[in-house]
Simulated scan of single mutants.
Amino acid sequence: MATRMQNLINQALKQKTATVILPGGQLRAGWISPKDHPATRTFRKLEAYHMLYLVRGQGRVIDHQGHASDLAAGDKLDRHPQLPHTLERHTDNQWLEFFITLSPTLHQSMCDLGLLWPKRFFSHVPVSTPLLKACLQFVENMHQPNSPGELASQTTLLLNRFQNTAAQSPEHQTTDQLQHAAHLLSDVNQQTIALPKIAQQIGMTYETFRKHFTKHFGKSPQQYRIEHRISQAQHHLLETDISIEQLAQQLGYNDVFCFSRQFKTVCGISPTLYRQSLEQ
């Protein structure tokens, strides 16, 4: 098995990147190794969708919400257009990733088909010889004179394979549930939803939700919600002229006094003094 896997990796290191034009836009696929991208830490906001599937090597990623995750073989990143994140490739000279890049129109089409989930950023798909063979064959087919329709069909089949394999992992299902909960907790329009209700929406009991969330994010759901509300408050105090009363209402607080008290607890000063300090 190890020899077959290494043979496939050697083939991947030699295979050239392929680019084709489909009816919905441009499709690119291939492999990235240290010779293509030396170890580096980069902040990115991509114009097109980029799927990163790590075959070997290690790294680290920080998503758009500031959550950091270590990367290892089998980890897959769905780097959706305009989604800010930071990617770090470690200096072990072993990095090898398979990638698929889709133009914004193609990306939207795949989302509409349920083959890509805009809210999914991180997942895990175990590395296997059948999957590597499928990736190698996909790129090879792109180099051949296949019709755009046939290539589009092959693209959907490969993305579906990644999607289904990731969905079979219980650990990934829990991560998806927690990511959805984090989205609800940070959504300004969802601030009045009680935590047990959020747990119910993601299919967990409240105690299970609280335990898994705290382990995954390093803070309780309530603390996560508070920090995101205050972070949004700081942004508005810096970037807008909105009144303190309007801001409190916009962020879902019952009254301005409750907002000011919580802001001072987190930041050490009141919202008014915070704004004044920025103006000096």
Rank of each mutant, 00 (worst) to 15 (best):
R229E: 06
T40V: 15
G59S: 03
L115V: 03
A48W: 12
R28I: 10
A18R: 00
E88V: 05
S103T: 02
N164Y: 15
Q177L: 14
W31P: 00
G74K: 09
Q154D: 08
M5L: 12
N10V: 13
Q6D: 15
L87D: 05
A12Y: 01
S128I: 00
L132R: 03
D92A: 05
H124P: 04
E207R: 14
G66N: 06
A68E: 15
D255W: 03
A39P: 08
F98L: 01
S153R: 08
H64M: 13
G268E: 05
H64D: 15
Q177A: 09
Q11N: 11
Q137H: 05
K197I: 13
A12I: 13
H50V: 03
E245P: 03
F99V: 04
R60K: 07
S153G: 07
I242S: 00
S169M: 11
Q58K: 05
Q262N: 11
I62A: 03
Q177T: 09
P104D: 03
S169L: 02
D187T: 02
S147V: 01
P23E: 07
M5F: 14
Q154H: 13
Q276T: 08
A2Q: 12
L77Q: 04
K264I: 01
T86I: 08
A48D: 12
G24D: 02
A199W: 03
L71G: 07
R261K: 12
M204W: 01
K35G: 04
H235F: 11
K45S: 08
S123C: 09
S147Q: 12
L77I: 12
E227D: 13
K264H: 09
E140T: 04
D70S: 15
K45F: 03
L54N: 01
Q6V: 11
H50C: 09
S270R: 01
W31A: 02
V55E: 03
L115N: 11
K14Y: 03
N93W: 04
C111R: 08
T192Y: 08
E207Q: 09
T3K: 13
L237C: 09
D75F: 11
H50N: 10
K35D: 15
P23H: 09
L116G: 03
Q137N: 01
L83I: 08
V55S: 04
N10G: 02
L185S: 01
C111W: 06
F43G: 14
Q173D: 09
F98S: 01
R275M: 13
Y253N: 08
L184Y: 09
C135D: 06
K219F: 02
S186P: 10
L8A: 12
T86D: 11
Q280P: 04
W31Q: 00
Q26P: 00
R60M: 14
I193W: 01
C258Q: 15
Y253P: 06
L71W: 04
L132D: 02
L151K: 06
R44Q: 10
H67M: 14
L278Q: 13
L83H: 13
P23S: 10
R56Q: 14
I193H: 06
R4S: 12
H37N: 05
N10P: 04
H90K: 12
F122I: 07
K219R: 15
T91H: 11
S147D: 07
H212L: 11
L83C: 10
T174Q: 12
T192K: 15
P34V: 04
A248K: 02
H143Y: 00
Y224V: 05
A2E: 15
I193C: 10
A182Y: 00
P271W: 02
H172S: 10
E140I: 00
G57P: 00
